[in-house]
Design a protein around this nucleic acid. Structure first.
Lengths: 115, 115
DNA sequence: TCCAATAGTATCCTTTTGTATACTATACCA
DNA sequence: TGGTATAGTATACAAAAGGATACTATTGGA
């Protein structure tokens, strides 16, 4: 790592990953491949249509995911990770690993208190 | 990576790193060691005292940084990364590396357009 | 004729995040 | 006596993120 946090590249990654839903969307698409809108929605209980649409649009405009519309009725729209989007995987993995240990850390603190 | 993004550990990491300022604060403390409040503030032009205080309090309550008050006048308060906080470094590094390539990617797209 | 299904919009609301500005206590120094 | 420095707090406000609910178009099927 360098010595100048000021003009900081970390922010770019954060800008793309930030939000309550984006990382989860990306995990779904990374792990399960192409998905329809309704499949994503079912896989994320709690998200509203508005939020899912918004997050997908933002990810698409960053070239992280791809959106393909099939001209059918009822409509069919498929989302998938782009090659570029796949480059985010190491970050997601680092977070996932850290998150796992974080859980252990929290449990450790609880155990200490109860001793 | 596993197959169940639902109860997802990635969120814990995001919860700690998210915000306009937290990653920058952590980078400062990781790279430059212990810092006083005023030093951090000077190192982050644009941040207000209220925000800096708030972010530091949150990081402290997550056990990511340590706050030491010296009973002096004028006051002196020092902040430093905890051992636990250092465990976030791989995530920050992955983001930093990705951010660097992201810049190249954006420049690549611009070059393509101008051709 | 009416209902279901899909992938959304539109509208309104609450919560969180961030900004701007003013204010505090206290000791040292001129 | 008045200014400077430090690490804040208080107040008011603006903007962004997120949530709840209702609505749309279209076609095939009962």
């Amino acid at each position: 790592m360098e010595k100048e946090p000021e003009h900081c590249n970390v922010e770019d990654a954060l800008g793309i990953l930030v939000g309550k839903w984006k990382p989860i969307i990306l995990l779904h698409l990374l792990q399960e491949g192409t998905k329809r809108f309704s499949e994503l929605k079912r896989g994320m209980p709690g998200i509203t249509q508005k939020m899912l649409t918004k997050q997908l649009r933002e990810l698409e405009s960053e070239d992280i995911i791809q959106r393909v519309v099939y001209p059918q009725v009822p409509p069919k729209v498929e989302y998938s990770i782009t090659e570029y989007g796949k480059s985010l995987e190491p970050i997601l993995e680092a977070m996932h690993e850290w998150g796992t240990n974080h859980t252990l850390h929290k449990m450790g603190k609880l155990n200490q208190k109860s001793m």
